[in-house]
Nucleic acid binder design. Sequence first.
DNA 1: GTTACCCCCGTAGTCAGCTACGGAATCAAG
DNA 2: CTTGATTCCGTAGCTGACTACGGGGGTAAC
Lengths: 145, 145
Amino acid sequence: MSKKNRPMTIGALAKAANIGVETIRYYQRRGLVTEPEKPFGSIRHYEEQALERLHFIRTAKWLGFSLDEIGGLLILQDGTHCDEARTLGEQKLTSVRQKILSLQRIERALDELVHECRVQQGSVYCPLITSLHDGLEKFSPEERP
Amino acid sequence: MSKKNRPMTIGALAKAANIGVETIRYYQRRGLVTEPEKPFGSIRHYEEQALERLHFIRTAKWLGFSLDEIGGLLILQDGTHCDEARTLGEQKLTSVRQKILSLQRIERALDELVHECRVQQGSVYCPLITSLHDGLEKFSPEERP
DNA sequence: GTTACCCCCGTAGTCAGCTACGGAATCAAG
DNA sequence: CTTGATTCCGTAGCTGACTACGGGGGTAAC
């Protein structure tokens, strides 16, 4: 039950990972993906490993890690640095949660304003605009970093 | 109960908003902050209003809005058409809600990983790292962008 | 074996969002 | 009135994450 480890060209790899060839080469330059040896005057071939690495990068990026941070995670790859990896994850988690809270406050504010606007239709003054004038202050005063 | 509206120089404004002078000027060029009239061959003075504007921009930026999007939000404050304002507000509301949902998915994924990491302490393999490897399939397979 | 596509590699451009530079004018302290 | 900090303004540079270009060479389908 082992997957075929058939090597592929950079184009095939890019297609398999659903990213651009140039992006892969950029990751190589950044040291996030290792460039395989070039067979005598020929074309490089990539193993399944490279595809997994690209998945790793894509997922970590989705989680909000920067390429530099991903580089940091890759160093921890041998699995023996769980503490450090967890710390990185916890930091990301904290900032994500802060963003969610702030967005929820904005959501409530916008929702209220839009709602008032609909009720008040036909009036000369736009409640949304007038409320925004000083109204946003009560929704996010000092919680702003 | 009205605050003193003492005007300040751009330097004082920058200090008050805790951002750089150059950044303010950049926002002016982008049309996010209006540049006050320059008194006869002299120095511009900024009102409290400008400071509030900068707070607004900073908050919205931290929440992940681009400067262009912030420009859109600011039209709500300067505009005179209720319909347009409401429409913009509704669009923003929709995108804010999408952002919240995305961040909540990210939060769940990170939270589970960090949790597994803590439970698994002492193991040879780090669950966070291995999950990144496997592409986080079990958390949110096809909803990843 | 020719043709069309793909790879290699370096360099350069893009986009967002700043950040810095530099020289002239202006203001504030002493 | 001098000195030293600010302001003004235009333009240029930087970071992060790509994306494109171009010329030369390999590969594979017919």
